[in-house]
């Protein structure tokens, strides 16, 4: 399972990356693997305000539905429109073209896991 070192992670398997004033959010390689092939992504409306840990949208595979949560507090400023036609991007490139939303807000590092801590979490969950 790929866990890039330069990202921050949540216990609910989202990742976050700072890009200027914005935080880019997606789900991890592990999360997409657990869910299976994504067939539909329900994204929030631009302008939605969210607290850290609040639901932003859902990802559907054939057999399951998963919610994804906001890693940070802020407002949704952009959503990945490509996913409407190509939900498979979440599976094929979860840390790149498969990103979900961009949020205006700051990363609170203390609340999130770094790559090492996230790897430990995955090790625990696989037991």
């Amino acid at each position: 399972m790929s866990v890039p070192n330069d990202l921050s992670y949540t216990r609910s398997h989202e990742w976050a990356r700072v890009e200027g004033d914005l935080v880019v959010v997606g789900i991890t390689h592990y999360a997409q693997d657990q869910l299976g092939e994504v067939v539909y992504v329900e994204l929030p409306e631009v302008g939605l305000g969210a607290n850290a840990g609040e639901e932003l949208g859902t990802l559907e595979s054939v057999k399951a539905v998963a919610e994804f949560l906001s890693p940070v507090a802020g407002e949704v400023v952009e959503v990945n429109e490509r996913l409407a036609e190509e939900p498979n991007l979440v599976n094929e490139d979860p840390y790149g073209d498969g990103w979900l939303v961009k949020i205006s807000g700051a990363l609170e590092e203390d609340e999130l896991l770094d790559a090492e801590a996230y790897k430990e979490l995955l090790a625990e969950e696989s037991h």
């Binding site: 559907e60 054939v62 057999k63 399951a64």
Partner: peptide
């Protein structure tokens, strides 16, 4: 689109 159904979605 079975994920709309109760055996998967349960309370939702």
């Amino acid at each position: 689109l079975s994920t709309r159904e109760q055996h998967i979605r349960r309370a939702k």
